[in-house]
C-alpha cells in the first residue's frame, strides 16, 4: 500500500515536471500571441514607426534584422564550414587539433555580451568600421562560428567512410571527394545547423548593443556602414526605454510576435529539412 502510494507520488512528480516545462512554453506563446496578434497588420510590418514611435510599424527593424542576419551568414557560414571540414576530413589527432576543439567548446560558452565587447574593440574601434550593421553582423558572426562548426562537423561525421573511399579509390583527391560526395551528401544536415544557428543569431541583442544597433533611424538601412534597427532591440527599447511605455505596449507585443514568428519559421524550416532527410534514409 505504502509502495503504491510512493510509486504514484513519483509518477506525479515526474509527469508534473514535464507538464510544467510544456506549460512554460504554452504561457509564453499564449501571452504574447493573445495580446500581440491584434497589433499585427500589413501596415505594422510595412511601415516605419511614426510620431515618436508611438504609432506606425516596424519595417526598419525587420529590414535591419534581415541585413544583420545576411552579414552574419556571409561571414560565419563559409568560415564555419571550412573549419569543420578541416577538423573532420583533414586533421589528424594532434595537440593542435585538440587545441582547436577546446577553443571551439570554450567559445561556445562565452557570454554573448563579451562578444559585444570584443566586436566593439575589434570591428568598431580597431578596424574603424564604426557602429554599423557590418560591425554588428561580424560580431554576431563570431558568436555563431562555434555553433556552425559543431553542427557541420556532426553532419560530416554522419557520412560513412565508404562514401569517401568510393571516390578516393577512383583516384579523386581528398578535396574532390569532399566537394563531389561529402558536402552534397551532408548538405541537409549542414543546412539544418546553419538555419538553427541563424535563428539564434537573429534573436540576439547583447552583441549588437554597442556595435551598431540604433533606437531609431530615418528610413531603412541601405548600406553596411549605417547603423540599423533590429527586432530584438526594438522590443527591448519599447518595453524599457521608451518615454511612454504603457502607451507603446501593444507595439511591443506586436514586435514580440513578429520576432518569435521569424525565429519559429526558421526553426520549422530546419525541422522540415531534418525530417525529410531522416525519412529518405
Amino acid at each position: 500500500m505504502k509502495k503504491r502510494l510512493s510509486r504514484f507520488l513519483n509518477w506525479t512528480i515526474l509527469l508534473g515536471c514535464t507538464i510544467l516545462v510544456c506549460l512554460f512554453l504554452g504561457i509564453i506563446l499564449f501571452d504574447i500571441f493573445s495580446k500581440g496578434m491584434s497589433s499585427l497588420s500589413w501596415g505594422f510590418i510595412s511601415q516605419p514607426p511614426t510620431k515618436g514611435m508611438t504609432h506606425g510599424g516596424i519595417l526598419p527593424a525587420i529590414t535591419g534584422t534581415l541585413w544583420l542576419t545576411l552579414i552574419t551568414t556571409l561571414f560565419a557560414v563559409p568560415f564555419g564550414i571550412a573549419c569543420a571540414i578541416y577538423l573532420n576530413e583533414y586533421a589528424r589527432p594532434s595537440v593542435l587539433t585538440s587545441m582547436i576543439r577546446a577553443s571551439i567548446r570554450n567559445l561556445a560558452g562565452i557570454p554573448s555580451i563579451i562578444y559585444g565587447l570584443f566586436g566593439l574593440a575589434l570591428f568598431v574601434q580597431a578596424l574603424h568600421l564604426g557602429t554599423s550593421v557590418l560591425s554588428a553582423g561580424l560580431t554576431l558572426g563570431l558568436l555563431s562560428l562555434p555553433y556552425i562548426i559543431t553542427t557541420t562537423e556532426e553532419a560530416l561525421k554522419r557520412i560513412p567512410d565508404s562514401m569517401r573511399e568510393a571516390t578516393l579509390a577512383l583516384g579523386a583527391t581528398q578535396f574532390e571527394t569532399i566537394k563531389d560526395v561529402v558536402l552534397p551528401k551532408a548538405l541537409p544536415g549542414i543546412l539544418t545547423g546553419v538555419i538553427l544557428t541563424l535563428s539564434r543569431a537573429a534573436g540576439e541583442t547583447a552583441p549588437i548593443l554597442f556595435t551598431g544597433v540604433a533606437f531609431y533611424i530615418n528610413g531603412s538601412t541601405t548600406s553596411v556602414n549605417q547603423e540599423f534597427m533590429a527586432l530584438p532591440y526594438h522590443l527591448y527599447m519599447l518595453s524599457t526605454q521608451h518615454q511612454s511605455i504603457e502607451q507603446v505596449r501593444p507595439l511591443a507585443y506586436g514586435t514580440a510576435v513578429v520576432l518569435i514568428l521569424l525565429v519559429f519559421v526558421l526553426n520549422i524550416i530546419a525541422f522540415y529539412i531534418r525530417f525529410k532527410q531522416r525519412t529518405q534514409q
Binding site: 565508404s162 562514401m163 573511399e165 568510393a166 583516384g171 579523386a172 560526395v181 552534397p184 551528401k185
Partner: peptide, 19 residues
C-alpha cells in the same frame, strides 16, 4: 597517389555507389 589509384582500382565489401 591519385595516379596510382587510377592504375589500381578497388571494389569494396558493400556496394558504395555515389549518391
Amino acid at each position: 597517389v591519385t595516379e596510382i589509384r587510377k592504375r589500381i582500382g578497388m571494389v569494396f565489401q558493400k556496394p558504395n555507389p555515389l549518391p
